[in-house]
Simulated scan of single mutants.
Amino acid sequence: MLYRERGDLTEHPLEGGDVTEGLVRIGETVRRPSAVTSEPVRRLLEGLAELGFAGAPRHLGVDAADRHVLDFVSGEVATRPWPAWLGDEDRLASVARLVRAYDDAALEIGLPEWSSAMLRDDPPGTPPTIAGEPQFIGHVDITPENVVFRDDAAFSLIDFDLARPATRAEEVVNMLLWWAPWVPVEDREYMVEGVDPFHRAGVIVDAYGLSDAERASLVPLSRNLADRSWHLMKHRAETLGGGWARMWGEGVGDRILRRQRWLAQNEAALREAVR
């Protein structure tokens, strides 16, 4: 559907993400360049809107430049350098509740045939995933830059470029990585250097709500994700370039290796934190 333009069409570049280029705001809309996953993301956002889920932007159409038009979700977003409020535990719990609400809505949409377009083959040498059969289309990129806050609580998820069929445990593992955070101290942003990643993991898991079996899977799955992500990031840097290549050049591969070691060294304490 061609989006019907109105008002001031001045473009304002949006920054803060790591890999999406050409993102702009025009009035109360965001324009995203077309990509391989644009069509399934459109279907996902339309499905969420039909369900009445308010925690994601609405898809409004495609503009004359073949960019996908979304409504602009106003509020606080953590652009770099990240703000001090990322360490707030009430905000942390609200993120987990928002992701749970999204996952519950996504579960109603299920895994339609079109969701297979969100999957990519693993590059050679990548360890196989241990996540099990996907349950719904997960967001699985729940970085601080991809959560909009209002009144000190998580209000909306944005940037569904990496959405794909996933499990509840995979969504929680992604939150643990970014929000606990499950990384060594030297790789944490300064405003969360002194937080307790074990305690915060418990806050996330309790606020989201998981079965005992899912809780038991979180640490092995986190280690598996770290093992897989080194190969995936390297492959994306080599084949997609852009922001992926920039992150690889800035040392993300070495940070992943340090995360692998940290997860292994702290496995027992991490299991206790989320049981």
Rank of each mutant, 00 (worst) to 15 (best):
Y3H: 04
R4N: 08
G7K: 02
L9I: 02
L14A: 01
D18R: 15
V19Y: 09
V19C: 13
G22W: 13
L23D: 08
R25N: 10
G27H: 11
T29I: 10
R32V: 03
V36I: 10
T37P: 07
E39I: 08
E39A: 12
L45Y: 00
G47D: 05
A49I: 04
E50L: 15
G55I: 04
A56W: 12
A56C: 11
P57V: 07
L60C: 10
G61N: 04
R67H: 04
H68W: 15
V69R: 04
D71C: 05
G75D: 04
E76Y: 14
V77W: 06
V77M: 04
A78N: 01
T79A: 13
T79K: 11
T79W: 07
R80L: 08
R80K: 12
P81C: 07
A84G: 09
D88K: 10
A93T: 09
R97T: 12
V99H: 10
R100L: 06
A101G: 14
Y102S: 02
D104A: 14
A105T: 04
A106H: 06
A106T: 08
L107S: 13
E108N: 11
E108M: 15
I109M: 10
E113K: 10
S115E: 08
S116A: 15
A117K: 11
P127M: 05
P127F: 10
P127D: 03
I130G: 09
I130P: 07
G132N: 04
P134K: 00
H139N: 12
V140W: 07
D141R: 03
D141N: 06
T143S: 13
V148L: 06
V148Y: 03
F149K: 11
D152E: 10
A153N: 08
A153C: 10
I158G: 00
D159L: 05
L162M: 07
T167R: 03
E170K: 09
V173F: 05
V173Q: 06
V173H: 06
W178C: 12
P181Q: 07
D187M: 01
R188I: 00
E189A: 12
E193D: 09
D196V: 09
F198Y: 15
H199T: 05
R200T: 02
R200S: 13
V203S: 10
I204R: 02
D206M: 07
D206L: 08
D206T: 13
A207K: 12
G209C: 14
L218N: 07
V219P: 00
L221W: 01
S222E: 02
R223K: 14
N224M: 01
L225V: 06
H231S: 05
K234A: 15
E238H: 01
T239K: 08
G242F: 01
R246L: 03
R246I: 02
M247A: 12
M247N: 09
W248Q: 03
W248H: 00
Q260K: 13
R261E: 11
L263V: 01
A264D: 09
Q265G: 04
E267H: 07
E272P: 14
